[in-house]
């Protein structure tokens, strides 16, 4: 089974059935990572370029491991945006990479829309590994997979996303993904971190943390960037943490079977306390494990053959 599209640029443009296919494919690939020899030959001979314009350990490693477990050749290119020589346009970069005949370019960039632009310049597949404050589709897929595993469903669940919504690509992708699968999504944060027209993405908006926690089946905490203090988005880490950090006391207002996600890396004691991050409700490490399976599924459904083939090997 392949996706009907060349690229995976965002969750917004995916149909519900495509998300479901990606999730069920990822489920079937989880088993590969549990094997002693964690490799299938499915994508032998395929070349994947990880083009990262923004520092990333987890996501880049996860894509790299996913490609390797599928027997694809993975090449990592880290570009600091500032060092890109003047005069070479994004189009030039894209055309040069394409000339090496990769099958897929995985791109992360601090500027929203860059994967979309890249996809117009190259004929190979482009996977968005996070663009600015726009989308992070593989993160949303792994979040959905994690919730689906734990709760058995997504339809009818209540998800609350808490933190810096304005700058969060994770929030946007998850709003699209979870609402398409029938969940109800609420975003919560200080008004300085909720952009105008947010509800038009299909979510509810609140600035009251207790309201966001009440009745939620899933709580997703977002990482707060300390630098945002300088932009007057919040007065101090201390106050942010008191108002919007998740600790045991605030968690008392949540459901007994609530689960807690965080895209990482976490700021312990800022948006999430250590007790909560390491506590029984936290699925933070399951998310990381599922990240590999989801990315294997993405490669497979963009570059691979049939699903039957994958199971035979």
């Amino acid at each position: 089974m392949r996706l009907k599209r060349k690229d995976l640029l965002g969750i917004e443009e995916l149909e519900k059935s495509e998300i479901e296919q990606l999730l069920s494919t990822a489920e079937s690939f989880k088993e590969v990572s549990a094997r002693e020899i964690k490799k299938v030959p499915t994508l032998r001979g395929k070349t994947v370029i990880n083009l990262f314009y923004e520092p990333s350990t987890r996501t880049r490693t996860s894509f790299e491991i996913a490609a390797k477990r599928m027997s694809a050749d993975a090449v990592n290119i880290s570009v600091s945006t500032s060092s890109v020589s003047k005069g070479e346009t994004l189009k030039d970069t894209a055309k040069n990479l394409e000339a090496m005949r990769p099958d897929c370019i995985v791109v992360r960039h601090s500027s929203s829309g860059t994967p979309q632009m890249l996809s117009k310049y190259v004929s190979c597949s482009v996977v968005n590994a996070g663009d600015g404050a726009h989308e992070h589709p593989s993160q949303a897929l792994l979040d959905m997979l994690t919730v689906k595993e734990k709760k058995g469903r997504i339809d009818g669940l209540k998800l609350s996303i808490i933190g810096d919504i304005t700058h969060s690509r994770v929030a946007r992708s998850n709003i699209y993904g979870f609402t398409k699968l029938g969940a109800e999504v609420t975003v919560c944060g200080p008004p300085t971190m909720i952009p105008p027209g947010m509800e038009r993405l299909g979510c509810r908006v609140t600035t009251d943390m207790n309201e966001a926690l009440r009745g939620a089946d899933v709580i997703m905490m977002l990482r707060i960037q300390m630098e945002r203090q300088k932009e007057s988005l919040f007065p101090s880490v201390r106050e942010y943490s008191r108002l919007y950090g998740l600790d045991d006391a605030k968690l008392k207002g949540a459901k007994d079977d609530v689960i807690i996600l965080h895209p990482g890396p976490i700021n312990r004691g800022v948006e999430i306390s250590s007790e909560v991050a390491d506590g029984p409700y936290s699925l933070i490490l399951d998310q990381v494990t599922n990240g590999v399976a989801v990315r294997m599924a993405i490669f497979y459904m963009l570059l691979g053959g049939t699903r039957e083939e994958a199971q035979l090997k």
Partner: peptide, 13 residues
């Protein structure tokens, strides 16, 4: 422009 479209696109408004 800052508005619902910039929010959707994740671009600064």
């Amino acid at each position: 422009n800052e508005g619902a479209v910039s929010t959707r696109l994740g671009l600064k408004g």
